[in-house]
Amino acid sequence: MSKRIDVEHLNVYYGDFLAVQDVSMNIEPRSVTAFIGPSGCGKSTFLRTLNRMHEVIPGAYAEGKVLLDGDDLYGKGVDPVTVRSMVGMVFQRPNPFPTMSIRDNVLAGVKLNNKRISSSEADELVESSLRGANLWNEVKDRLNKPGSGLSGGQQQRLCIARAIAVKPEVILMDEPCSALDPISTLAIEDLINEIKTDYTVVIVTHNMQQASRVSDKTAFFNIEGTGKPGRLIEYAPTSEIFNTPQKKETEDYVSGRFG
């Protein structure tokens, strides 16, 4: 588990609109990488190209290469469905399947592609995934209740449990805490610190403290103005980005002198 990601000269378009221009970066396995930058600079767009989720949006496409341990995700004959089972994603708003029980939510990804799994294996996987998401103790007595009955923070951890249950190589998170209270946020941050021993984690956040708390490296994206493409400005170890940034733009942004 846990693979490295190498992005080479990636452009992302929505139809004619170039949203992200010429991004190259290398993401180490078993590390947490944070994407920061002003709204609209293409963080979500770029993140979604790492598991081809942008293709869900009509007209969106990417040019360039994304290599997962050397295998091009955009190579000929590569099925986006396989890509997404290797690169999991957690969204801004918690989105457990409302009609499924907590248990079925965790197993949702595992049961895909007609995979069969014995009931005892399933029990084990549910427990280990929920433990991995620090949710087991809170829900172990109500595994058959609907996932939508949990609090927002619990729902988000359920989504993380669901993502790790399929044992992906990489987990992408798009502002996973922005809909949560500070306590739930801390719970998720602790969780990120724990799961990075097994997974490559990439997280988009607007919260600089969060980026400095959880990430090993930080990528700063910026945009020159509306209608202009977002670009990667600086990518370095997190302490460097926040303490000794090389670029003026980065310094302005992290010190709050942006705009």
Binding site: V56, V81, R84, M86, N95, G109, N113, R162
Partner: peptide, 13 residues
């Protein structure tokens, strides 16, 4: 969209 994307992101066809 949220729920559709939840399924797709898990590798659903």
């Amino acid at each position: 969209k949220l729920h559709e994307e939840a399924a797709l992101a898990l590798g659903a066809t």
